[in-house]
Lab assay of single mutants.
Amino acid sequence: MQNSHSGVNQLGGVFVNGRPLPDSTRQKIVELAHSGARPCDISRILQVSNGCVSKILGRYYETGSIRPRAIGGSKPRVATPEVVSKIAQYKRECPSIFAWEIRDRLLSEGVCTNDNIPSVSSINRVLRNLASEKQQMGADGMYDKLRMLNGQTGSWGTRPGWYPGTSVPGQPTQDGCQQQEGGGENTNSISSNGEDSDEAQMRLQLKRKLQRNRTSFTQEQIEALEKEFERTHYPDVFARERLAAKIDLPEARIQVWFSNRRAKWRREEKLRNQRRQASNTPSHIPISSSFSTSVYQPIPQPTTPVSSFTSGSMLGRTDTALTNTYSALPPMPSFTMANNLPMQPPVPSQTSSYSCMLPTSPSVNGRSYDTYTPPHMQTHMNSQPMGTSGTTSTGLISPGVSVPVQVPGSEPDMSQYWPRLQ
């Protein structure tokens, strides 16, 4: 039975679970980093996980050691009161100082060594604690504590007292930064006198190289990059290397530039699409467009005044059976039934097929058609009795279509119309 579990990581490298990497692998990681390889490249070359490479390099940059820390136990506290007071002093002298600059000053002034120097995250935590204590304490208590930490007896009751030896409130920041720059020169002199001055200088240079600022491109470089971006948004590694040799930039910087440029292009394309949609959409909808001609068919113009009344309900007709019959029939052209047409008796099958359309009241044959006459024609229609054979009435077949029909004066039988409509 094995005491430890061995495995293979996602890159194909072998590791022992819970145990640190061998010293030979750690040394190779540092050597590759000094030669300029990126952590992701080191991870692929040595088949070590990216997190492990970053952790080893980060500890090497901070402490200069590649040895693993002790497994188990607690780390001794490195942010001692003396170190905290120095950090507060540096922050007062130059409020814009960075944590890694404070760390360098602690090393250069001999406050800490490589073994007990606090990390950048520890210094940031100390600065946050100082800021929170400043908010919790009152103004007087804060000034007393700062005077105690600074070891001075001057008056701290006013704002300019934060910067000793100065009279203009805006000047101390520059003086403090100048003092810090002077301390940086002392850093070089002190570290050069040490035993491991060369190694420390190499480590600091490598650290500065990794902690780079934003790349500033010249106009020629920007023009070359934009020209390549117009050709393709995704250049391959050969195109990037050719462009890197042409404009004297690292291939990694060119790759990052193209990634950022593609993101910018997507944002601009989104804005262009929004403007295009806004320009195509009308600002207001016309009133006429809300009524579609496919839904509402136009009603033909009436030929006679009587045809303006298109349904039985508008003429005072309360018989719903006839109203439904007229509205359900398709529109037909106007025609006239003459008196000489043969009077065919209704076929029983045809009569039964339209039995649902006729009223059940037996008085329908005896009703006159003056009910369908509009009010303004009552006088004219009353002067001509319906009993004469020459009287013409208008029957409504569908809305908007008038059918003048000659009705025999002897017997106005409704059943004569249905064979004609089939």
Rank of each mutant, 00 (worst) to 15 (best):
I56T: 03
E82G: 08
S24G: 14
S54R: 15
W100S: 08
K134Y: 14
S65N: 11
Q2I: 07
G51K: 06
T63C: 10
D104R: 13
E31C: 07
Q47Y: 15
L46N: 01
C52T: 09
Q2F: 10
V30H: 02
P22L: 06
I45T: 11
P68Y: 01
G110C: 10
K55Y: 02
S4E: 11
E101K: 12
V111A: 14
I97W: 11
G58P: 04
A99F: 02
N116W: 11
Q136R: 10
Q2N: 08
N3E: 10
L21W: 00
R44K: 12
D41I: 14
Y60M: 04
M148L: 08
S54V: 15
N17Q: 00
S35P: 02
I29N: 02
G12F: 02
G110A: 14
V48N: 02
P95G: 11
Q10K: 05
L32Q: 05
G12D: 03
I66V: 15
N116D: 15
N17V: 00
A139I: 06
E109Q: 12
K28Y: 06
Y90G: 03
L21N: 01
K75A: 07
R92I: 12
L46H: 00
L130W: 15
S119T: 03
A99E: 02
P118W: 02
S65K: 06
I87R: 01
T113Y: 07
A70P: 07
I117Q: 06
L107N: 08
I102W: 01
D140K: 12
R26T: 01
P95T: 11
P81N: 14
I97H: 13
G110V: 13
I42T: 04
T25C: 10
S6G: 14
Q27T: 07
L11A: 05
V83M: 03
V30Q: 07
D140E: 14
N129F: 06
H5F: 12
D115P: 08
I97V: 05
S74L: 01
S85N: 08
P81R: 10
Y61T: 12
Q136H: 13
E133A: 09
D144H: 11
K134Q: 08
A139Q: 07
K86M: 11
I29P: 02
L130G: 09
G13H: 02
K86E: 15
R67I: 05
I71V: 09
K55H: 13
R19H: 05
C112L: 10
S85P: 05
S65P: 01
S4W: 11
V126D: 01
I45H: 10
S108A: 15
Q136P: 11
H5L: 13
A70T: 13
K91T: 03
S49A: 02
D41R: 14
D140W: 10
Y60V: 01
R19A: 05
G58A: 05
R69Q: 08
A33R: 07
R69S: 07
V83Q: 01
R77C: 04
Q136T: 10
P22R: 06
G13Y: 01
A37L: 12
S43L: 01
M142S: 11
C94V: 09
L127P: 02
R128E: 04
V30C: 07
F15A: 03
K91V: 03
Y60E: 00
L107W: 10
S85Y: 13
R44L: 06
Q89S: 10
R147H: 13
Q27L: 07
R19E: 01
E101Y: 15
G13M: 02
F15I: 05
N124D: 01
R67K: 05
N150W: 15
Y61C: 15
G13Q: 00
N9Y: 00
L21E: 04
N17D: 03
A79P: 03
V30Y: 03
E109P: 07
G110Y: 15
G64K: 13
P39M: 15
V48G: 01
S35A: 14
I66A: 06
H34S: 14
